[in-house]
Write a protein that binds this DNA or RNA. Structure first.
Lengths: 224, 224
DNA sequence: GGCGAGATCAATGCATGCATTAATCAATTC
DNA sequence: GAATTGATTAATGCATGCATTGATCTCGCC
């Protein structure tokens, strides 16, 4: 998203590296890891790793437990409900704002591109491709909303969703309904109808939340 | 909010101390401060101060500028609009959830207490007292909503509002309208009417946002 | 007199070392 | 045999030191 500002510090690389390890599942949810172990793994000293760990703790990805190492946090269905409720509230507001701003079809090219990419991915039965395009759609929607703080908060929440999706992506039907929802939201924004855009997006996220929470509960309580 | 867990680390004390300095205005918005200077001021070494600074940066209170020290962030009217929009979306959702949960009048004692304290403060023309009670009302409302993540995000946003209020608190009428709003929201929650509670709260925050942004613009662009 | 290049300065970012202290293990006693 | 207390271990939290490198200041040249 943001270009490399300064030389790129080791702490920043540590943060990115740890995020990657967490999202790839190499640091499993619920597992403990010593700072020194992580530092050795990344080929750094403890200091930048410690800084990265503190940031990731504040981001809700892990927890520092004073003598027991850092624990990668697990996400319960209840957590997922919380995350989705935050997303519902903020994204639907963003959708309203985007519709009010009345971007022409020009300003919505990226949003539309994400739509067609999702369709294409579904046709190919490419779940990862669909997920990536879905992320782009939601990211662009929020960007169009014109509220930086909303962008940042949503990005954090999406991190959590991403982890749950690792598990669920292959355990359900291809999300055709979801795509119809997206297209309807896009149309409302293009027609500059804020009320409709907000209402449709709210319904979309509520549906997704209910599906995901039900699925998670059907499995075991604690998952990625 | 949460009790002291472990012995309380120096880094945590540094974070709290820096927050206090910022909110008291001793570290002025827009001012720069070297890490070593802050460390000396707090009687600590640079390490825990640096950790605290990194956390506060992520909380949006300051910015680390590699060779120029940490800069205490200023808040523009546009920033305030963003903050209030986030608060509007999340708190009104919390109000809905609180109404749905149908807490009896028993479960709402703290919310009601905040109300009466706000009334009393207005009668005394005690602006700081009113502000403190207002914080309690909003904090309790969000707690009743039953979403930890919303609580945390709202707390961050309230930090920003607090800084702007330092400037504006004495520059406007006593907020009687605001209190009527609060009472109406309380009543809707007590009557377990989610739609009403959400609608009323949304209107309340929108009003507060418009007043504050207008006031800030009437002064100068960048304020606390 | 103004502008540019080079040297000096200093703040950060990182590594390292140490003290603190929680957790584990063992030994002794009941 | 179990439990409690003491000793040992080791991970964290903090302090300190150093290298890197951006910023500033000076000197020289145009």
């Amino acid at each position: 998203m943001s270009a490399a500002r300064h030389p790129v510090s080791s702490a920043q690389r540590a943060e990115q590296a740890l995020r990657a390890l967490i999202f790839d599942g190499e640091l499993a949810p619920g597992s403990d890891h010593l700072e020194s172990e992580l530092a050795a793994r990344l080929g750094l000293s403890r200091t930048p790793v410690r800084e990265a760990v503190l940031l990731l703790e504040q981001q809700g990805l892990l927890e520092v437990r004073p003598r027991k190492g850092v624990r990668i946090l697990q996400i319960s269905p209840e957590d997922m409900r919380e995350v989705y409720d935050v997303l519902t509230a903020l994204e639907s507001m963003a959708a309203e704002a985007a519709a009010e701003a009345d971007h022409g079809a020009d300003g919505l090219v990226r949003l539309h591109a994400a739509l067609t990419q999702m369709d294409a991915a579904i046709a190919r039965d490419d779940r990862k491709g669909w997920a990536a395009a879905d992320d782009r759609f939601h990211g662009e929607l929020v960007r169009l909303g014109g509220n930086r703080r909303v962008e940042e908060i949503v990005a954090r929440m999406v991190d959590q969703v991403r982890r749950a999706r690792m598990v669920t992506l292959y355990m359900r039907e291809m999300p055709r309904q979801s795509n119809a929802d997206h297209r309807a939201v896009y149309e409302a924004i293009r027609k500059a109808d804020p009320e409709e855009a907000g209402r449709l997006h709210r319904r979309h996220r509520a549906r997704a939340r209910d599906e995901l929470v039900a699925l998670l509960k059907r499995l075991g309580l604690k998952s990625v």
